[in-house]
């Protein structure tokens, strides 16, 4: 059963970037942890601690220098390149800058993962509406991102991240550009998704929201995992 295996398993994962002239920068150093299905986990730490690197490794935007990463029973090291798009369809990704396409409507932005996955055209409108309803933006389908507020744009980004019902939602500083009120709304939305059974891994330096959520927290410092509240 899928529930018997961890959703995420990092084992001695290191990421080293060459700086030239034989020197290196270690963004992650032998990081190990597991996340069970249905868990909501925060990754915190100062800028440069390795939060974004950890998420980039999870989304396979990069491959680790050392160690192994298993997600949903898939060893990412052994994942062939042609399987990469199919792996990413199991993930939902929320970006700090939301990465919405400005020349497409809210509907088209949210529908993008479904179209990319080749979903039946009749199913797409239902899924998009359900997703927009979840983030409280039903009725804004025909609008373009530029006319929405920062908080609304981020919620469109979340709607796009969950429209294909991923088993794992990854968010990289999702409230980095938002004020306290909007940040609270976004984190409440994550809590709601968590209650619906989604596994979440959220990188943030917003410690106030993290402590309010009372969930497991991994703290990184200069690439090392220095604290795991669950361990």
């Amino acid at each position: 059963m899928a529930t018997d295996s961890p959703m995420i398993e990092f084992t001695h994962v290191s990421m080293r970037y060459p700086l030239g002239a034989g020197s290196y920068y270690d963004a992650l150093r032998a990081v190990s942890f597991t996340v069970q299905p249905g868990e909501m986990v925060f990754v915190t730490g100062h800028s440069g601690a390795g939060k974004s690197t950890l998420l980039r490794l999870l989304t396979l935007m990069e491959r680790p220098s050392r160690g192994s990463i298993v997600v949903n029973r898939k060893n990412l090291e052994r994942l062939p390149r042609r399987r990469l798009p199919y792996y990413r369809r199991e993930l939902g990704i929320v970006f700090q800058d939301n990465k919405l396409l400005p020349d497409r409507t809210v509907y088209d932005n949210v529908a993008l993962p479904l179209i990319a996955a080749g979903m039946d055209d009749r199913e797409i409108p239902k899924r998009v509406r359900a997703s927009l309803d979840l983030v409280g933006l039903l009725g804004k389908e025909r609008q373009f991102p530029v006319v929405l507020s920062g908080g609304e744009q981020q919620r469109v980004g979340i709607a796009r991240a969950v429209v294909h019902r991923p088993s794992l939602l990854i968010a990289d500083e999702p409230t980095g550009n938002l004020d306290v009120e909007l940040s609270t709304a976004i984190f409440d939305l994550f809590a709601s998704l968590h209650r619906h059974g989604t596994t979440l891994l959220i990188a943030t330096h917003d410690l106030r929201q993290v402590s309010r959520m009372e969930q497991r927290t991994l703290t990184l410092q200069r690439g090392e995992l220095v604290r795991d509240t669950h361990a």
Binding site: P85, Y87, R89, K99, L112, P113, A116, H164
Partner: peptide, 16 residues
């Protein structure tokens, strides 16, 4: 470029 990156990250295949 941005559109291509987003499509890649939401699971679009190279053919798509």
């Amino acid at each position: 470029q941005t559109e291509i990156e987003v499509i890649q990250l939401v699971g679009g295949t190279p053919a798509f």
